[in-house]
Amino acid sequence: MKKVQGTVVIKADRCKGCAFCVDFCPTDALQLSDQYNAKGYRLPELFEPEKCTGCDLCGLYCPDFAIHGFIIKKVA
């Protein structure tokens, strides 16, 4: 079913914890973690990495340019 495997990169120092990426992830691969950055904002995390398709919708929604997704593998 799934053709690609993706992942995300999160820049913790830029995140402001708005959770747009978590809410609008089409495959629900992201969730808010228990980790906080230096400013006290709660960070997102990729808690189901195998679900990520690298569509980069999180990157398009992120107002702080703190997350982006990309494809790492094409699954044959």
Partner: peptide, 17 residues
């Protein structure tokens, strides 16, 4: 699901586009 035939087709990029 990933299988053994998985092939890497792209180099991971580090910077936000």
């Amino acid at each position: 699901m990933l299988d053994q035939n998985a092939v890497e087709t792209e180099i991971p990029e580090k910077e936000n586009p």
